[in-house]
Design a protein around this nucleic acid. Structure first.
Lengths: 134, 134
DNA sequence: CTTGACTCTGTACCATGGTACAGACGCTAT
DNA sequence: ATAGCGTCTGTACCATGGTACAGAGTCAAG
């Protein structure tokens, strides 16, 4: 784990606000080693630009479907030498992503069918279960 | 909540197997009212084709990103008269799905960039954080 | 009529990703 | 110098979606 670089000028509250998360979430990420232990100023954590960059990365990697544990590994890898491990994680995630996107698109089709069936004006219930049985 | 229709011939173990879930999961869904309370045969639950249909629907709706609570509502709606509510749920979910698909596609681009950068042979670490900073 | 596989209810536990205090301490402005 | 806000550590709690017993009952085959 690499220490923060650059000016360490953000309090935890500022960092959290800039990163779009709560203070408790920052501390939680720290406990999970997603953020390094920052320098202290009379007991108060001071964060820098690198910490903010990591924090923002965490949110994006989460959106990509990585777990916090995988993100921790990615962050370690970012400053390590293991190019093949990084490629492997990326490749696996792309596969998972492709599968997930296909799932969601199938689900979208089902919902479109449902909305269409259900919008056809008639009376009675919408064929919800049937819309997904394709 | 509508009772199961048709022959009630499956034990919980058979139902779970056919639906691709565990026995405990079926009981869990029952506690959450996703499956109706089935008829009993000397204390033993007996399920029918309709239960299996519901169970399979649950899995597909989960893949569409519905929570179990929303799925419970959809199942109720399936036999109800509230067409507009069903359309509304479907429309909301399509929007959420579109947003999620876009997210995943952006993430996929980032991972592709990462794999490309990281595959370029050079030495040193892969620019993992940088790959997501677009 | 016993053995083994299955089921019952109820309760406890799990992982993931946070969120919420309590009680103490620090920093800044008035 | 004191109010008020922010921060500290530590621990507890939350929602979601299950999973795992324990202890008792049921059922079919041998």
């Amino acid at each position: 784990m690499v220490q923060s670089q650059g000016p360490a000028s953000l309090t935890i509250g500022r960092l959290a606000a800039e990163g779009g998360v709560g203070v408790e979430t920052v501390r939680f990420y720290q406990r999970r080693s997603l953020l390094g232990t920052p320098t202290r100023d009379a007991g108060i954590r001071r964060y820098g630009a690198e910490d903010l960059r990591r924090l923002r990365f965490i949110r994006k990697a989460q959106a990509a479907g990585f777990t916090l544990e995988e993100i921790r590994e990615l962050l370690d890898l970012d400053s390590g030498e293991d190019r093949s491990r990084a490629r492997e994680l990326a490749a696996r995630r792309i596969e998972a992503l492709d599968a997930r996107i296909a799932d969601l698109q199938r689900a979208r089709e089902s919902l479109k069918r449902l909305a269409a069936e259900c919008g056809k004006g008639g009376q009675g219930p919408c064929p919800i279960l049937a819309s997904f049985e394709l």
